[in-house]
């Protein structure tokens, strides 16, 4: 069985320039990720984790180095293609949820479908199924303000899945949640990985990183360790394979 690389990052650097002051945030980072892998990136605050995620998520471009995503060289793409990749291949989950305030859970989950090249005919059904999958079918008309933190993060997971992306990128997804809700969210990621999606979770919580198969450690913009998690359950028999397709 040949496993294809979905992400190949080769010695990328990221430098921010602010008022003549240059900050090297990423210094020659190379990562290659197999399709369907479950990765956690840990490291102290300020080490460049979020910066790396914005580059992996095509929200930002590296200053130098190459990035191949599912065979496409991201550094050479323009706004249209980057937007298409974000829309079709990547689902984002953020620490601060980033749901649109005043907009119902249903409409928040709908957002990625607005920017598809072809809106699927069964868009409404899909949104309903995605919300049902995270157990929120009865909260569809609620706005973020009417939902608990755990519920809001479940809405963002439904939103990240609505376009059936290959990769889910999460930046501190449990950072604003208590441990019970955090565990529920991580359980959701485990399921997403079990159905074949590539998961990359950024965290500084060891409990969270323990869910991943492979743990990368970033320090001062460099990868200082790349380990396989001994406790990762190879057997995924316990996870029911459910899809939203």
């Amino acid at each position: 069985m040949s496993i294809s690389k979905i992400i190949e990052v080769d010695s990328i650097n990221k430098t921010y320039k602010n008022e003549g002051l240059e900050t090297n945030v990423l210094k020659g980072v190379s990562i290659s990720v197999e399709e369907g892998d479950y990765i956690s990136i840990i490291g102290p605050s300020g080490s460049g984790k979020s910066t790396l995620m914005t580059i992996l998520g095509c929200l930002n471009q590296a200053t130098s180095g190459t990035y191949l995503l599912d065979g496409e060289e991201v550094g050479k793409l323009g706004d249209r293609d980057l937007s298409r990749i974000r829309n079709e291949k990547i689902g984002f989950v953020f620490q601060a949820f980033h749901l649109l305030p005043g907009v119902s859970a249903f409409d928040n989950v709908m957002i990625p479908l607005i920017y598809c090249n072809k809106t699927p005919a069964d868009a409404i059904e899909r949104v309903k199924r995605a919300l049902a999958r995270v157990g929120l079918e009865h909260r569809m008309d609620h706005t973020p303000g009417q939902l608990s933190g755990g519920e809001q993060q479940r809405v963002t997971i439904a939103r990240s899945l609505i376009n059936d992306p290959k990769i889910v990128l999460a930046d501190e997804p449990t950072g604003n949640l208590d441990s019970k809700n955090g565990a529920e969210i991580m359980n959701a990621f485990d399921h997403l990985n079990a159905e074949g999606r590539t998961i990359i979770v950024i965290t500084h919580d060891p409990v969270v990183s323990e869910h991943a198969r492979r743990i990368l450690t970033l320090r001062d913009g460099e990868i200082v360790s790349d380990k396989i998690n001994e406790n990762f359950k190879e057997s995924r028999a316990g996870l029911a394979r459910t899809t939203i397709e």
């Binding site: 706004d79 937007s83 980033h98 920017y115």
Partner: peptide, 16 residues
């Protein structure tokens, strides 16, 4: 600005 960011994350082009 958050709203704009969210839209861009989920596939909005600059032209959108």
């Amino acid at each position: 600005i958050r709203e704009i960011g969210v839209r861009r994350c989920f596939g909005a082009r600059r032209s959108d």
